[in-house]
Design a protein around this nucleic acid. Structure first.
Ligand code: MN
Ligand code: MN
Ligand code: MN
Ligand code: MN
Lengths: 217, 217
DNA sequence: TAATAGTTTTAGCCAAGGCTAAACTTTATA
DNA sequence: TATAAAGTTTAGCCTTGGCTAAAACTATTA
């Protein structure tokens, strides 16, 4: 079994990938010094889970990816389970799942997945990998890439930043909601969207973390 | 925050206590070499969580006890939560809680406790410590200590051994069940109990792990 | 009460996973 | 294109939590 540290590194490399991941980015995401990240990346390379090209970056081998996706699966199943059983807001889920994901046995993972009806997405709309690390293809569109006046449905919101998530929630943006981009502020940077019965401005950086699909399935 | 190892040592010392705990017993419960247990006990003594009298044994300080009970609370709340939401048998709960207990935040602990209605016992009948480490007084009687022909109600069964727990369950012995000791096999060692509509023989070693109370409240 | 068995501690080792400071590469800038 | 800045790796250190083997202590038993 991988240690908590190893699981966190693998998951982080996956999240920052699939391109070569910079030592700095990895270190920052994990709150460790760059030297620590380098050392761990080297250890994972020894173990055949990572490919490291010095001064260039790190990427997962297929075995590394499999294990990373196993952590992601546990994380997202836990988020879904907690949101379904307890009355937690979408912004509280990530942090809790982050702690619990390493302690979930394969057996309990299966029981929870069945209990939930083997869901394909978590409460943020993130796809849940299958038990063998199959990742459902994800063809959602970045909100910021969409054209004006198309009818869209939100499919994914980010999960890491509770502040942002609370703001999105308060303004009616979460998976399932319909919206339309009505205009772009090309310089102020941002887009104006209209929802069912309100309309708000969303900065580019936020629009870069929200995914949508076209309304007609 | 205490590490996983520290939490496990504190909980184990509590479980083996309150008398001075022998190095060997501690090592065995935690699956480590006696020398490892000695070393950790010394570290915990440094930190003021344990009192160690060399060659005699280890016991918890009041701060050590508080932290141990916090782990026990998380463990027992998790067992209760899992048994209530998923359809796990009583014999599967302990192992899962053992892994998850270290990843449960204080906030989620509170949410779960409220969701469950702040229960006083877990599915094995073990008392759940309060949020500040108050342990409900436990005046249950050892089944093996009870006299013949008293009307008894099972209050606690052990949680560690899935085999045993499955056996108990199959024979109708679990918290809430009424029974009566009808005779003792003083030499074959064991007691004969009659339940609602069956009667079985229970070895002394098992009867030493089952607690009961008198039927009239 | 002296030898022996059992238990505990000490000594010395190791791997994991952190850190800082210094050295080295790569990239950007003058 | 030379130099400076930014990013990365190496070197060397530390703590935690394991281990085994040997030494020390305690309890038992002859
Ligand atoms: Mn998440
Ligand atoms: Mn999520
Ligand atoms: Mn238990
Ligand atoms: Mn229990």
């Amino acid at each position: 079994m991988d240690s908590v540290a190893v699981e966190n590194y693998l998951k982080s490399i996956w999240e920052l990938g699939p391109d070569d991941v910079a030592t700095q980015d990895l270190a920052q995401l994990l709150n460790v010094a760059p030297a620590s990240a380098t050392k761990m990346v080297q250890r994972l390379t020894e173990r055949g889970l990572v490919k490291h090209i010095p001064y260039k970056g790190a990427s997962l081998t297929s075995e590394g990816r499999r294990r990373a996706l196993s952590v992601v699966r546990r994380h997202r199943l836990l988020e879904t389970f907690l949101s379904q059983t307890l009355d937690l807001g979408r912004e509280q889920l990530h942090e809790e799942a982050e702690n619990l994901e390493h302690g979930l046995s394969t057996e309990l993972e299966t029981v929870i997945a069945n209990y939930l009806g083997n869901p394909e997405r978590d409460p943020h709309g993130h796809p849940i990998p299958g038990p063998n690390g199959e990742l459902p293809i994800d063809e959602d569109l970045l909100l910021s890439d969409c054209s004006l006046n198309q009818y869209l449905v939100v499919t994914q919101v980010p999960d890491r930043d509770p502040e942002l998530l609370t703001w999105l929630e308060k303004n009616g943006i979460f998976p399932g909601i319909k919206l339309k981009i009505v205009s772009r502020d090309d310089f102020g940077g941002g887009i104006n969207v209209s929802l069912e019965d309100s309309s708000i401005q969303i900065s580019t950086s936020v629009a870069n973390e929200v995914y949508v699909k076209l309304e007609n399935d």
